[in-house]
């Protein structure tokens, strides 16, 4: 449904996107994960025809974005980053404009408007000016304008940024409900978001794809976290020495100081294997184990690891 081949986009001398290739199957939800400034928005802007690629080919439904610009744009619903809408129009007036421009026949327009406003929870603010809406509502208007013409491809740039947790849940379930019939490409820099909404994930950094994985695969990678937190009842010096001397421990950090309880965070590339050793150590010494758990990997950690793996692979 979406095909990106060797996409390169340069702004002057800076290369924002560097030979990116991927494809999205019909009905699939694909996540683009990357830190700010990694080229996610640029990829999306090329896909939606906002500007052309410097090199490479981008096609939606087999149609080249540059050659069949209007047909492609008719098939895409796009939510830009930091969605900015016309502050001096009411929600209903703006969505009417979108419906007209996106070619929804006037006979169907009213019904479709009501459907979309209900789906996005906008009915009660239909006659408010967009400029007076809260960030959460504006984001919903942004999603409403993207889905109003029932596009076959939905491109969402950071759809949940700036929303409160309740709204995030609503938006995520809305996106998931569209999957299956609609092909969705969404970008985010929030790690848990992709595993919750996407089926497949592409991780990009400095405009290059550094990893491609399924949501489950990514979760597995995350479980193989490098940091482990243990709380052990025992003598401080003895525990610290014993943990430090375990094979593969790169660093040990102390956390909190409760009398008689030692809380340590260990860092090791051995991950799960180290946790096994830790448990065996505690049992062998006859200490009490209060807690042992891998710390969730932050996006930064994941990136450090992926970039590391990437370099190892190319070296």
């Amino acid at each position: 449904m979406i095909t990106v081949e060797n996409l390169v986009k340069e702004f002057g001398s800076t290369r924002a996107v560097d030979h990116v290739s991927f494809s999205v199957q019909p009905g699939e939800i694909l996540g683009l994960l990357g830190p700010n400034g990694s080229g996610k928005t640029t990829i999306m802007r090329v896909l939606t025809g906002f500007f052309p690629p410097t090199e490479g080919r981008v096609a939606i439904d087999g149609l080249d974005v540059g050659e069949h610009s209007l047909e492609v744009r008719q098939r895409i619903g796009y939510l830009p980053e930091n969605v900015v809408l016309y502050p001096d129009l009411t929600v209903r007036r703006f969505l009417t404009f979108c419906a007209e421009v996106k070619g929804i026949a006037s006979a169907r327009r009213r019904g479709r408007l009501d459907e979309v406003m209900t789906a996005c929870g906008l009915t009660e603010v239909a006659h408010k000016l967009i400029g007076q809406l809260s960030k959460g509502y504006r984001q919903r208007v942004g999603i409403a304008q993207a889905i109003i013409h029932e596009p076959r491809v939905l491109v969402l740039d950071e759809p949940t940024v700036g929303l409160d947790p309740g709204q995030i849940v609503d938006i995520r379930s809305l996106i998931k409900s569209l999957g299956g019939s609609t092909t969705v490409l969404l970008s985010t820099h929030i790690l848990p978001e992709v595993s919750m909404t996407c089926e497949r994930v592409i991780i990009i950094d400095y405009g290059r794809i550094i990893a491609e994985d399924t949501a489950e695969g990514l979760t597995l990678r995350l479980r193989g976290s490098e940091e482990t937190r243990v709380r052990i009842v025992g003598t401080h010096a003895e525990v610290l020495d014993a943990v430090r001397s375990l094979p593969g421990v790169d660093a040990v950090r102390e956390e909190g100081a409760v009398e008689g309880v030692v809380t340590l965070v260990t860092r090791s590339v051995r991950g799960d294997a180290l946790r096994r050793d830790l448990a065996a150590l505690v049992v062998g010494k006859g200490w009490d184990l209060l807690e042992i758990r891998p710390l969730p990997m932050s996006l930064e950690d994941l990136f450090v690891r992926l970039v590391h793996e990437d370099r190892e692979g190319t070296a």
């Binding site: 906002f50 209007l70 047909e71 796009y78 830009p80 900015v84 421009v101």
Partner: peptide, 14 residues
């Protein structure tokens, strides 16, 4: 300035 041009340019409008 608002950035709404991004919407217009990605809508099916010449």
């Amino acid at each position: 300035r608002l950035g709404t041009i991004e919407l217009l340019y990605t809508y099916p409008l010449r």
